[in-house]
Amino acid sequence: MKKLGHLNRDIARVLACLGHTDSIVIADCGLPVPPGVECIDVSLALGEPGFARVLDTVLADMACERALFASECHSHNPAVSALAAALPAQGIATEFVSHEAFKQHCGQARAVIRTGDATPYANVILYAGVIF
């Protein structure tokens, strides 16, 4: 049995397969998953698990160099905006685009991790960095 890192086997598999600049999405329960993109659904109930918890566990096990958020989070979800503001201190560049552009970028992701979060714009695209 795995002792360290992400215990969800599907998330662990996707993280292990990422190459430099590949992306994954951590999404609220309402974000549409583009056709052909794997969906790893970890939702249990509305709000469970929340976006912040899933983001923390993924970042603990992923070399991430860049994060992309919908700019609407600034006005509609202060908690997600605050999480985004904290990422540069962890060495993760943070960018913002319109929600429509964000959804277009999701089509290039290796996987969407669907949380139970039911707050608006609780979504991020994480781009893999390297460990050397």
Rank of each mutant, 00 (worst) to 15 (best):
A27V: 03
T115R: 03
E65H: 13
A111P: 03
A79C: 08
K2N: 10
H6F: 14
E38Y: 00
G50P: 01
Q90G: 07
F51H: 03
H6I: 12
V112Y: 00
D117F: 04
V33H: 02
V58Q: 01
F69I: 04
P88T: 02
T57W: 15
A93F: 06
T115G: 05
H99M: 03
P88S: 07
V14T: 09
S23M: 07
E95T: 14
S23W: 00
V97T: 04
V37I: 08
A84M: 07
R53Q: 14
I26T: 01
T115S: 09
A60G: 10
G19W: 04
G50S: 10
A89P: 03
D28Q: 05
R9V: 11
A82Y: 11
A63S: 06
L83A: 04
S81K: 14
Q90M: 14
V80D: 00
T115A: 08
Q104H: 15
S71H: 15
A109S: 11
H74A: 10
N8F: 14
L59A: 05
S75C: 14
I40H: 02
E100I: 10
V54F: 04
C64T: 02
A52E: 11
I113R: 04
R66D: 06
P32F: 06
A89M: 11
A84P: 00
V124L: 04
F96L: 11
V97L: 04
C17L: 15
S23Q: 05
L126I: 08
S71P: 06
D22R: 02
L31N: 03
N123C: 05
E72L: 05
H6W: 12
D22S: 10
V130A: 14
R66Y: 05
F51V: 01
E72Q: 12
A89S: 11
G36M: 09
L31K: 03
G30N: 15
F51E: 00
H105A: 09
F102K: 00
I131V: 14
A67R: 05
G91K: 05
I24E: 01
G91D: 07
E48N: 10
V130W: 00
H76S: 15
A82T: 11
S43H: 10
G30I: 06
V25N: 00
P35T: 10
K2S: 09
R53N: 12
C17E: 13
K3H: 11
A70C: 12
A118I: 08
I11H: 03
S81T: 06
E95M: 09
I40P: 01
A128L: 04
A86W: 07
R114W: 13
I24N: 02
R53I: 13
L59N: 06
S71M: 13
G116K: 04
R66L: 09
I26E: 02
A52V: 12
A12S: 12
A111K: 02
R9D: 08
A60K: 11
Y127R: 02
P88N: 07
S71E: 13
S81N: 10
A86S: 15
V25F: 12
A79S: 15
P32T: 08
P88W: 15
D117N: 12
F69N: 01
Q108S: 14
S81V: 08
V97D: 01
D41T: 09
A85M: 07
A82L: 13
